[in-house]
Design a protein around this nucleic acid. Structure first.
Lengths: 111, 111
DNA sequence: TACGAGTGTAAGTCATAACTTACCGTAAGT
DNA sequence: ACTTACGGTAAGTTATGACTTACACTCGTA
């Protein structure tokens, strides 16, 4: 069952929902890194990191660029941009709706 | 294994990673609604919706307020705010890092 | 107080996905 | 060419979580 389109933002949420992937993403965001380097600092095997990086790549959150025998992973602005856009589309509305509700609550109390 | 704190933003990503929960959240964001009302518009049972709402509530994405026999769910700005903050903390850096990398790529090519 | 509407929770099932080990390909150095 | 470093993929295991049905609770109304 699919409820909506906008696959980039969607996949990004699912991708960052996993704690291991979020840890990998944060490390890559701090500094571009290879698979082996990332695996050394994490409690999972190298193939696991490799698999997570593929998911992050497909979600538009990181990019891969061969550098000799290694492959350096870097942060990709597209995924973050898509998520920001999705959040912003709800943000203003969320504030309005909540404020209106809060105001009504106050009216109830002061009756 | 837990990698980091900031549980609100973290739980929010995991919560919105599920397509059914994202659908529920989007509907609640558009208009406050009861559990039964939401269930009628979705391909899952009412208890399933109830369980999803609990996850969304614990992630700070919705609030619950009894209204007679019903419980009305509304959007909660805190979850979205936490996610925006998390994203923004990576956003500027992502752009910088990516731009720098792109520039280097250009230098390589023009050698 | 009895009843119907609305909802949360418990328990169990099943699909998904996160992880492991084993294997194979590719690039650089001797 | 051989070897070593690096990393993706396959296959299998296991834990997680999304879903169902059954049950219990609360609130308003007759």
């Amino acid at each position: 069952m699919t409820y909506t389109r906008n696959t980039l933002a969607i996949d990004s949420f699912a991708a960052l929902g996993d704690p291991t992937r979020r840890a990998i993403f944060e490390r890559v965001a701090m500094k571009p890194a290879s698979v082996g380097y990332l695996a050394k600092g994490l409690p999972v095997s190298r193939p696991a990191v490799s698999q997570h990086l593929r998911v992050l790549k497909e979600a538009g959150l990181v990019t891969e660029s061969p550098e000799g025998a290694r492959r350096i992973y870097r942060i990709d602005p597209r995924g973050i941009a898509a998520m920001r856009a999705w959040l912003d589309s709800h943000w203003a509305f969320a504030l309005d709706a909540f404020k209106e509700f809060a105001d009504k609550q106050d009216e109830e109390k002061s009756k």
